[in-house]
Simulated assay, not measured.
Amino acid sequence: MKNGIESIFKAHLVPKEVYQGGKNIPPSDKKIYKLSSNENPLGASPKAVEAIKKAADRIDLYPDQTDIRLRQALAQDFDDKLNENQFLCGNGGSEIIDMILRAFINEGDEVIYSNPCFLPYSVFSRWYGAKLIDIPLLQPNYTLDVEGILNAISERTKVIFLTSPNNPTGTYIPKSVMDDFISRVPKNIVVVFDEVYRHFADAEDYVTALPYVLDGHNVIGLNSFSKTYGLAGQRVGYCYTTATIANYIRLIHKPFLLPQTSLEAALGALNDHGFIEKTVQTVQEGRKFLAKAFDEMGITHWPSQANFFIIDPPLPEMEFTDRMMDEGIMVRPVSQFGAPGKVRITIGDAEANETLVNAMRKIMNK
């Protein structure tokens, strides 16, 4: 029997796997290309940088108490198909995931997700005592197991996580599959649709959460300013959903959640349409270049709709990662994401992509 402080610890908060973000660029005399964290290949939006500089003069003051200005800007960005009350902003997409789980999960409730996927779905769910139900993506193409998920639903199921394009596989959920799935999910379950990489998708049958939210389904579209807008270091995320769900989650929204610099940066980046277009173009052109190069080298890879690829490396994943680092290229092994033996490679600018391919050819002696 525990008599110390451990006696009041929550039983489900036992030491388990924790999410570990990508590594930072280490000190080096040579140039290092960071292709491991899916960051923007062009850096940050210039308008966001300028907004941060202006906001720096006010960091001694508390920021906006709420996120209303950003929510209004987001509603406009969505062509006013949604109103500001249907948005929620937070300290990165991860903060939004945490808020959703805090709002809906009690100990013993069930959360369904599909590995390989973004690790916080399971790690954060465990914080609240959820029972984790993993319905893996179907091999060999990493497609959604719709029937498996629907068959796994029980009276305790509260949240289902879907991702499109998916991290770390880059694969997506076609509209016909989503239409069928959403039509069959019970009305008392929240579907979190992570679409953080949506700007990079160009498949004709790609779909976001928007049409399902507009139809009144219990769907939450999860987004971030870290990728397309180049604000990974400012930690700004948001989601949109029905007004009923948004207003409910807003009950646990902290005041002053977004720092002044982050808020102004997001507002600036949202209106930097030229930067957004250039980012998407850079990623899509780089995606074609790398896919062709991987094919020529005989590297197994999966068609991607995101700003990264998952590959089956020519060497064991950690050996490959270390060898690439020796060549000045940072890539990320993704066993932790549920894809053992695989490596994720972010699409960079033209110089980074060419350096990556040359490094891989050198390692493979091709």
Rank of each mutant, 00 (worst) to 15 (best):
G93Y: 04
G216Y: 03
Y240A: 03
H217P: 08
A130H: 04
D109E: 10
G341D: 07
F161E: 01
E327Y: 10
T282A: 14
F104H: 15
N271H: 09
D349K: 01
Q284D: 10
L263F: 01
A246V: 03
I329G: 09
L144T: 01
D109P: 12
N40P: 09
D180G: 06
H217Q: 14
N38P: 02
A75S: 11
A73F: 11
M297T: 08
I311T: 04
W302M: 15
Q260P: 00
P313L: 03
E351P: 01
A265R: 00
A359N: 06
E327L: 11
S224F: 09
A266W: 00
I252P: 11
S335D: 08
A152V: 04
S28Y: 09
L101N: 13
V283A: 06
T241H: 05
Q281G: 04
I149Q: 09
G237K: 05
H253N: 15
F225T: 01
R323W: 02
K23Y: 11
K34N: 12
I149H: 00
K278H: 08
A51K: 03
A293W: 11
P63H: 01
N188R: 15
E107F: 08
F9P: 05
A130I: 09
Q281W: 02
F104D: 10
Y229L: 14
P186H: 07
Q72N: 05
I347G: 05
D60Y: 07
R287D: 14
G233F: 08
G341V: 06
L144F: 07
F118H: 12
S122M: 15
S7E: 13
P63S: 10
N83V: 10
M325H: 05
A339L: 07
T321E: 15
L13P: 04
L257R: 00
N353W: 01
F9V: 05
R361E: 13
G22A: 15
I32W: 11
S164R: 02
P211L: 11
I105W: 10
N24A: 11
L101C: 13
E264L: 13
I160H: 01
I25E: 13
P303Y: 11
F337W: 10
C89A: 03
F124Y: 07
I153C: 07
V191S: 00
L251A: 06
T171D: 14
Q281L: 14
P116M: 02
T244R: 10
R287E: 12
T300Q: 12
T208Q: 13
G92E: 12
H253C: 06
P27S: 09
D272Y: 06
R102F: 07
I329C: 12
S224I: 09
K47C: 00
N365L: 09
Q65Y: 06
P15S: 14
C239K: 02
